[in-house]
Write a protein that binds this DNA or RNA. Structure first.
Length: 149
DNA sequence: GCCAACGTTGGC
DNA sequence: GCCAACGTTGGC
């Protein structure tokens, strides 16, 4: 099993939304490196839910992948902000997963705490200038994060 | 294939 | 609101 970190702005979609909806298709990823990570995610993998651009910044909860290799439906929807006219049904360009709510942490693991506890090599999210919205997390790091939650 | 220009992200 | 960092675009 693998571990991931999914980044989102809670003003748009946060852990509270996921708790309310229980499941969601993680749509709108339009970065090839992030997409490639998503394509390797498998059912049963766990993903940390990171809140960006908000106070407090940090890991707010946990979810799990319940469906893998979904062609992101928003790429085909002209009304969607994620619409991609260069994609098509026969050869979808953007792939994603469906995630299910697992847990909202009692306290957000803050970015400051993450920086104190981990090295940039261990946790991509704390690397300077990182903008990837989907990143892998090693098992060792994941287990430590789960203990901190 | 290079790279300047541009738009976006996201912490501060 | 600022701005550094980054990815993408498009002219050449």
């Amino acid at each position: 099993m693998n571990y991931w970190l999914l980044k989102s702005e809670p003003d748009v979609f946060g852990i509270d939304h996921l708790q309310r909806f229980n499941e969601t298709i993680w749509d709108g990823v339009r970065n090839y490196q992030a997409r490639n990570f998503l394509q390797t995610a498998r059912v049963g993998d766990l993903a940390f839910f990171y809140h960006s651009n908000v106070e407090p910044i940090g890991i707010a909860g946990l979810c799990k992948i319940v469906e893998a290799n979904i062609a992101d439906p928003s790429q085909f929807d002209p009304r969607s902000t994620y619409y991609d006219p260069k994609s098509n049904l026969a050869a979808p360009r953007w792939w994603t997963v469906k995630v299910q709510f697992v847990e909202k942490f009692a306290n957000v693991i803050s970015l400051e705490t993450l920086r104190q506890q981990f090295q940039p090599d261990d946790l991509i999210i704390i690397r300077k200038g990182n903008r990837l919205s989907v990143t892998p997390v090693s098992e060792a790091t994941a287990l430590r994060l789960l203990e901190m939650a």
